[in-house]
Simulated assay, not measured.
Amino acid sequence: MLIHRAREAGFAVGVALIVSVAATSAYATDPTPKWCQGVKIAAFPGGPQGGVFANNVYNGFKQAELDLGPSVTYYFSDWDPNKMLTQIQQALATKVDGIATYGFGGEAATAPMVDQAFAQGTIFTTLNTSLPESQKKYSAKGFGYVGAPNYAAGFALGAEAAKRADLKAGDKVFVWGLKGQGGDRGQRTVGVIDAFTKAGAKVIYQEIDSATNADPNAGTATFVGVMGANPGIKIVVTDHGGLTSNVGVYARAASLKPGQVFFAGFDMSPNTAQAVKEGYQNLVIDQQPYLQGYLPILNICLTKKFGFSGLDVNTAGAFVDSSNVDAVAPLAAKEIR
């Protein structure tokens, strides 16, 4: 009888221990607020403060900062690759835990800074414009990429615009882009041009100058001049979120009616949504720049705290046009999409 009871007592103790261990295990994995607190990050929205696209990225950064708890310093670069490279060097000098930036400078100029970053214990990751060789070298240490595969995105936009506008061999198209910019960023414009070349179109190309890059209104005279000098242009592609947001202004300045020319471009904004509704803007690739801000902060926090490798996320999965703009427009107004 005593032995039987002792066995019962032993069984009860064993069950209690199992429950206790299970409960301890559950508590160990409970969600933790602000779990990235104490981590210092330098984040690059890309353009001017408050500018189109840059502000969407900034909003993603800010939400991640609020949700996760790191301390974030922001560098606004006016879409100037040289300014961004200088700011990256400044950020490195502060010995931050992580840097989330664009690859505008290209591999040749940026790779030495990436090497310096990881040598000093700073996690370096990219958004919007990749540094594929550096990412391959350091992905296991946290180097990731959040954005579109740029050449493929450019080609996809050009091909879709050609199809929807019923482009014929010999038709004129105007591509306003950044082919001359280093690395992966210039490849997006190359992708657009290649798609039109494959379709047999006559491509009229204009590099976006530095003034227009920083302030799209500065390009109005350029747009009017190109359209006036090349009558019969069937498609216009603006390979820049700021310029795409200004399509309504450009079209009116050139006395174009809605639908007279097929406009395609990159990135949603309140003005772009309005231009789609008015019939000026016909096709937009939505890169979801908010994610290009939020996810790199998450990337750095995951690597710093838990040793995770870099994230690689394609954010450009959909076109926006008149059929679905009403769903996106309210989010564009909040600078989330």
Rank of each mutant, 00 (worst) to 15 (best):
G14L: 14
V21Y: 03
A26P: 00
P31C: 05
P31A: 01
T32H: 05
C36H: 05
K40L: 04
V52N: 09
Y58N: 13
L66A: 14
G69T: 04
T94A: 08
T94N: 05
E107A: 06
A111C: 08
V114R: 11
F118D: 01
T129C: 07
K136Q: 14
S139H: 15
A140M: 08
K141N: 12
G144V: 08
V146L: 06
N150C: 14
N150W: 13
A152T: 05
A153D: 13
F155W: 15
A162V: 03
K163T: 14
G170P: 00
D171A: 06
K172N: 03
K172Y: 01
Q181K: 07
T189A: 03
G191N: 11
I193M: 14
D194H: 14
A195C: 10
T197S: 05
A199T: 14
E207S: 10
D215C: 07
P216T: 07
A221M: 12
V237D: 12
L243T: 12
S245A: 13
Y250C: 09
P270H: 06
Q274D: 13
Q274T: 14
V276Y: 04
G293Q: 00
G293A: 02
I297E: 06
I297S: 06
T315E: 09
V320G: 04
N324H: 02
A329E: 04
E335N: 12
